[in-house]
Computed example of a mutant assay.
Amino acid sequence: MTDFQTLVTEPWDDYGLVDSGHGRKLERYGRFRFIRPEPQAMWAPASTSWAADGDFIAASDDEGGGKWHLSRDVPRGGWHLRWEELRFQAQNTAFRHLAFFPDMMPQWSWMRERTAEGSEMLNLFGYTGIGTLALAAKGARVTHVDASKKSVEAGKSNAFLSDMTDRPIRWMVDDAVKFAAREVRRERRYDGIVLDPPKFGRGPDGEIWRLEEHLPGLILHCRQLLDENSKFLVLTVYAVRMSALAIGNLLQQALGDLGGRIEVGEMAVREEARGLLLPTAIFARWTKD
């Protein structure tokens, strides 16, 4: 494995981490600003007064969830944002997110650099499809898999907003583990795989996903879908008591026979107020270059 790395999301026109501290963060999504809980922001904020269009109030740890308190100006049906050539919809979701994960931006850029015209890519736990569209824009054929029909439909809508409905994307509502196992039986192979799994989830037929329990088996399936000509596998992990070194070791054991290298580290977003880095996730990725 290489040295531990930090992948940093820098502000862009339609997104920025404005300020953070005292267990909260203030972000801008296009023309709107929102406050969300952020346990990792243990420091004091730059400003003691935040002006926002919405605030997510979390429930207790035992209950989970929470509720948005939004101004009248925030469109409940969402609004459009842009990253590079992609257009997509942001929206206040019941899970405190805004329908995409801006800290994935460095991963999107890294994968695009390794994507050639006609490459076969697999996006497991693909959510609303920004990563899928980022790869498709480089000429890749992408299989997008998510257990949520609503998320897959949002991905299709984002493809329409980006004028990419003609791109070769397979939109699949399916359980990631079962889908990967079927692809192994079909003897399919991919040039790249990206996994962004939740800590806990349910498949379309009630299948249970628990990260610590099911991730090792899924990685072994993914190994069988890669070969010596494949380019990368990217794994990101959120909201768990797990080390980047641990998931790096998992990839090293499963993919070590392919050669290449394993990189591990943290993902973070740079705060606009002071330049502080707010950690958001851990990652491990394999590449042949």
Rank of each mutant, 00 (worst) to 15 (best):
G131N: 13
D55S: 02
A94S: 11
E120H: 06
G77H: 02
L122W: 02
D73L: 05
P106W: 05
A59Q: 04
W83A: 09
G131H: 03
T115V: 07
E117S: 13
A94E: 14
Y127F: 14
H69F: 12
F101K: 02
N123W: 07
H69S: 12
A136Q: 03
A137E: 11
D73W: 00
A137F: 01
F56G: 03
F125G: 05
V74L: 05
R82Q: 15
R87G: 08
S60L: 06
A136D: 09
L81K: 06
G65Q: 11
G131D: 05
D103V: 14
D73C: 06
E63S: 09
G139C: 11
L86D: 04
H97Q: 10
N123A: 13
F100Y: 06
L124D: 03
D61T: 10
F95C: 01
W68A: 01
F88R: 00
A94Y: 00
G139W: 00
L122D: 08
A94F: 01
G64M: 12
E120V: 10
W108H: 15
P75Y: 01
N123L: 04
A99Q: 14
R82F: 01
R96L: 01
A90I: 05
A90V: 03
K67R: 14
A137R: 06
L98A: 13
F56M: 10
A116P: 00
Q107T: 15
E117F: 10
F100R: 11
T132A: 02
M121F: 00
L122F: 02
T128F: 05
H80T: 15
I130P: 00
L98M: 14
H69Y: 09
G54T: 12
W68Y: 12
E120F: 03
T132H: 04
E113T: 13
H97R: 05
G118Y: 03
G64I: 13
S109E: 12
D103E: 15
L81W: 09
R87L: 10
L98Y: 02
P106G: 07
M111G: 01
W68T: 07
G64H: 07
I57H: 04
A59I: 00
P102T: 10
K67G: 13
R112W: 07
P75H: 01
A59Y: 00
L124R: 10
T115D: 07
G64N: 13
A58C: 07
S119Y: 14
P102K: 07
Y127K: 09
S119I: 00
F101V: 11
K138N: 10
E120G: 03
S109H: 08
M111S: 05
R87C: 08
Y127C: 08
L81A: 06
E63P: 02
Q89N: 05
N123Q: 08
D103Q: 15
T128K: 04
T93A: 09
G129V: 01
Q89L: 06
G118R: 03
A94Q: 10
M121R: 01
F95H: 09
Q89I: 03
D73P: 01
